[in-house]
């Protein structure tokens, strides 16, 4: 079976400044993958290369086995869900219009779009009566749920998320992360999530990709990473949440 996402020696530079260097990455269908690393590691750039928001300077990006350079950008992006940092909801559209935007670009009939919006509000656990409200009238957690619903509206098989829970308070954050993980399972998605929170990545993902300086340093299941890694940068990055977890466990034991 072909991998859902393949990066083949992909580089990206802005004004000669390399952000991503000859990166190879394979993401198998159905996986939940977290991209972690410090700021400037190239995580968001890598994510945006997958749906063509950014074009690579060199190398190829394959989605479902097909080089995305041969596809039209808008058409590609309509088939891939994307949850933005700070949500990026359209302030002049209602919640239902935001959720229905990609189906409407795809030319779905109006009643199908409305039905889909209701369905997604249920799916992301929002009351249906928020459908007519403006994004500004919602709480941060509700807005991010709308962002997830919008990304899933056109039934994509791939979901990309850029720091989706970054701006939320811890309680809302954990609840939403759990819900997203459940959606990933039930909808059979391939999910790639950028996060700076290594603990969150370890707890949610099937695989964690560790990045630094525009390169992938490691790609492994959380358990393997926690067991230790030869690369000192990776080891350092994993050590911090592990120590935290151990101290929490001690505290809990009393």
């Amino acid at each position: 079976m072909t991998d859902a996402i393949v990066l083949d020696r992909v580089s990206k530079a802005y004004d000669g400044q390399a952000v991503l260097r000859e990166t190879d990455l394979r993401i198998a269908r159905g996986r939940f993958v977290a991209l972690v690393g410090g700021s400037g590691a190239g995580k968001t750039t890598l994510l945006k290369l997958i749906n063509g928001l950014i074009a690579p300077t060199a190398g190829r990006v394959l989605v479902d086995g097909e080089d995305i350079a041969s596809r039209s950008g808008p058409e590609l992006r309509r088939g891939i869900g994307y949850v933005f940092q700070e949500t990026g909801l359209f302030p002049h559209m209602s919640v239902a219009q935001n959720i229905g935007i990609t189906p409407s670009l795809l030319g779905w009939p109006r009643d199908a779009i409305e039905a889909r919006a209701d369905e997604l509000l249920d799916l992301v656990a929002l009351p249906r009566d928020v459908a007519g409200r403006a994004p500004a009238q919602l709480s941060g957690g509700q807005r991010q749920r709308v962002g997830v619903a919008r990304a899933l509206a056109a039934r994509p098989s791939i979901l990309l998320m850029d720091e989706p829970f970054g701006a939320l308070d811890p309680v809302v954050r954990v609840a939403l992360a759990d819900d997203v993980r459940t959606l990933h399972e039930t909808l059979g998605l391939t999910t790639v999530m950028v996060t700076h929170d290594v603990g969150e990545a370890l707890l949610l993902a099937d695989e964690v990709v560790v990045m630094a300086g525009g390169q992938v340093l490691a790609q492994a299941p959380p358990r393997d990473l926690l067991a230790g890694h030869s690369d000192p940068v990776v080891a350092d990055l994993i050590a911090a949440p592990r120590r935290q977890a151990e101290r929490l466990a001690e505290l809990a034991r009393g």
Binding site: L53, P74, R77, T87, G88, I101, T102, L105
Partner: peptide
């Protein structure tokens, strides 16, 4: 700019982004 990027991200063409957003 975040809204403009979101418009591209949901699959709008340049023209759709102009008229709809």
């Amino acid at each position: 700019p975040a809204v403009v990027e979101a418009a591209r991200g949901v699959g709008m063409t340049d023209r759709q982004r102009l008229w709809r957003v």
